[in-house]
Design a protein around this nucleic acid. Structure first.
Lengths: 340, 340
DNA sequence: TTGTACGCGTTATCAG
DNA sequence: CTGATAACGCGTACAA
């Protein structure tokens, strides 16, 4: 049995498509009796309008797209992502939208952006390449970036990553550490060179080092790792088995720091006595793990809410501010406290 | 400047819509010169086919829907959900699909299911009400249920919840506990009465109790809580301040157990000495929290993968097995070990 | 090798 | 005031 279409209802009821459509969407424009008859037939036949055809003519899809920085398995291995999704989701539901996760196809965002049937797009954790932005523009899609670079002509939601990074590095140096192992997160090749938050955080870390003693810069070991516990574990193994073993490991996100802590425990290295560990993000696990993780607490949930809020306003055709900077705070916990 | 459509390209190039479409989708059917000319014009004008119109004529949307048991903020507060999404996402990407989260609209799943432009649907953590299933059927949407009741005419992915629950409760009783506080998770009103996994787990818990001493049944305190840390915290407060204070709290999912542990710590109640705590799911946090949480480790990631795998086969029109039962194991950790 | 016509629901525009 | 016609957007079976 084939799908029931509006044409079937029209044919059977003897009215035109227009009248049938009005029966559902604009009851005031047709007679009461006509409407009752049409609704009755539709109910009997179990008519459900094809959502796609509906979206096509209404030019509204009832869903917004979330452009992910990594493939889904990796992205959702980081609960910072879950926090952001929670915030976006709250606004989506309030406005009756669903939320479409658009992962990179073959390491590229282009394909997904070209073919996404969405009312607007939120990017997260990355600044899309110029060609990706161009496609979004060509498609006239409203567009908000979480953790992107301000000034690109689209709204950006973020924190002051540079100051936050400087704050946590300063704290580490206050503990008397001299050899810092820095673990950055890896991005898609597409955005690796320009990832705004990574650039900002690195600058912040360097600022803190520069204010103390420039020589320290030479001891800064930079490693890249996927943003996951496994990634952090491997990075820790590399750093902690090197000849210049660091006395502090500063991770650019909490999940990596969790991996570092896990490796340290397995290897019999005590935190914070043997090595200090810090993260960045303030995910729930940072307060659950032992030792508790010193980190920058940033409002992932609020970021998501604000981003979705701005996007909804853009979708509605309202102009919005182009930069929202939310507060982030240094949270000092056991993983970085030198007790001598 | 309005959108560039295929008609514009046709008009400007002097060819018909068909020819333009073939230039992109079936190059072999037109002349090489014709194709080059059309592609050149399209590139110059920045033509991007409207994804919705494309979906309409191709009857393929390139996305699958995930019907969530709770609103997004609550659902993603539970990292068991993240695990499942990771598994689904891996398969989606492999097949070039995106993933649409369909939350309940005003406590109801119906609206979302009616208007979802997706190739298929995965339900999770709930058994859709009969009317929801009916709509999915009417729409001829392929459909797979994670943690649903087998035998409904659609494939179900799950574990043996009854045996798993019996195993963990037996373990608790082995520790000598006599007053069990049981915390169940709350569902949407729509499915509350029939949630298959809850019914199965309750049965398993009761089986274990029944095998020891029927009198224990009277001491079983059942509480409901939202599946979140906050929910677990509140449930713990109620249970631990009651006159018949339990010597074990058995939670139906890990996030609730995490809340119980958090409350116990704040209230100065020691786990496992004062009260034993167990969870269910085996989320990553269960191994991070201290004391480490005794739980049932179930393969959320694999559940997602299997479900998406079956769904993709259904979308491709292939018949599939209608019940996949994955293994789950009892993992005994510190939170339930009585050391006397 | 290329063009015509159709499917799908909504709505601006027109006819009665 | 009520109801019908036609156009939108794309891919493709079918006709030429």
């Amino acid at each position: 049995m084939a799908r029931i279409t509006i044409n079937d209802i029209a044919r059977i009821s003897g009215y035109s498509k227009t009248t049938v459509s009005f029966a559902f969407n604009d009851p005031g424009r047709i007679g009461e009796a006509t409407r009752a008859k049409i609704l009755g037939i539709a109910r009997d036949l179990g008519y459900i309008p094809d959502p796609v055809a509906r979206n096509l003519s209404m030019k509204r899809h009832g869903t917004i797209g979330l452009l992910l920085p990594d493939d889904i398995p990796l992205a959702f291995d980081n609960s910072y992502m879950a926090q952001i999704v929670r915030g976006i989701g709250e606004v989506c539901e309030r406005d009756g939208h669903s939320l479409t996760l658009i992962p990179p196809i073959r390491e590229s965002l282009l394909e997904g952006v070209r073919s996404a049937a969405v009312d607007g797009i939120i990017t997260i954790g990355l600044e899309p390449g110029p060609d990706t932005v161009e496609i979004i523009r060509h498609r006239h899609l409203p567009f908000v970036a979480i953790d992107g670079r301000p000034g690109g002509g689209f709204p950006v939601i973020g924190i002051d990553d540079r100051s936050a990074a400087e704050a946590i590095m300063s704290h580490v140096l206050d503990q008397g550490c001299t050899t810092i192992g820095l673990v950055a997160f890896a991005d898609l090749a597409e955005v690796r060179s320009t990832s705004h938050v990574r650039v900002q955080r690195l600058e912040g870390y360097r600022n803190a080092l520069g204010k103390r003693d420039h020589a320290l810069l030479d001891d800064l070991v930079v490693t890249q790792a996927p943003a996951s516990v496994a990634g952090g574990r491997e990075a820790a193994q590399r750093l902690l088995s090197s000849s210049t073993r660091p006395d502090a490991i500063v991770a650019m996100c909490d999940v990596i720091a969790l991996g570092v802590l896990a490796y340290a425990e397995e290897a019999g290295i005590t935190v914070p006595q043997d090595v200090i560990v810090t993260g960045f993000d303030g995910i729930p696990e940072s307060d659950i793990v032992r030792p508790r993780l010193t980190t920058i607490s940033q409002p992932g949930y609020l970021k998501g809410r604000h981003a979705a809020d701005l996007l909804m306003r853009l979708v509605a055709g309202v102009a919005v501010e182009d930069h929202v900077e939310l507060p982030a705070t240094l949270v000092v916990r056991t993983s970085s406290r030198r007790t001598r």
